[in-house]
Amino acid sequence: MTPNLELTDIAFRRHQQVILDSVNFAVSPNQIVALLGANGAGKTTLLRIIAGVIPDFTGTVHVSEQTDPIAIKAAISTNFDHDLRHSHQRLLKYAQATRVLWPHFDLAQFETICEFFELSTAKHLDELSKGQRKQAQLALCLANRVPLYLLDEPFDGLDLMHQTQLQKGLLQFLPENASVLLTDHHVESIANLIDRVMILHHHTIQADTSADQIREQRGQSISEYFQSFYQKED
């Protein structure tokens, strides 16, 4: 199957400093891939490059075999498009306005996902708790029916119960054949969810392997494997 995402020789500098260099990988349909790395490794930058938010990089981004920035934008959904903190709008109104911007946004699907999260769409955005905001962001993101989802720390700062509920929502409502690329600080909390791990370190992808292969061949947890990249240097 053709990959939903393919990166070729991605490089990016900020103020003369190398942030990313020679980043190459592809993500197949149905994969949920974790992009792991220390703070400041460039995970969020890489997601933003793929999403087209940062334009001045070199290399090629293919999303569903397309390279045209407008086509790419229409084929990607992210959770960082929706800040939601600085508006008094009701959630439903916000979603209705969002629908105009995203050609593949499905409002009925959005309402179904909110129902799954037991999140009232009549709520005002600035009255959402942190957990509810994460729910709303994921619901907006998943209601956009596209091949590629970019999730930047979608479960960050939530208790275990809310994390599990969001993960179940993701698994339930992910479109058939879609791919997910996600980042998270807390490797343990996403260990079940992912089927592949990439480690971004020294500006590039240092490791790219299946999650169960790490467990099977090394007898390590994903978290131990991740930490081993940093211990080597001590």
Partner: peptide
């Protein structure tokens, strides 16, 4: 498969394997 994935909070590929 998808229901099992949601029930066990595990990705679909793992269930399928």
């Amino acid at each position: 498969v998808r229901q099992l994935a949601v029930d066990l909070t595990v990705n679909v590929n793992t269930i399928q394997r």
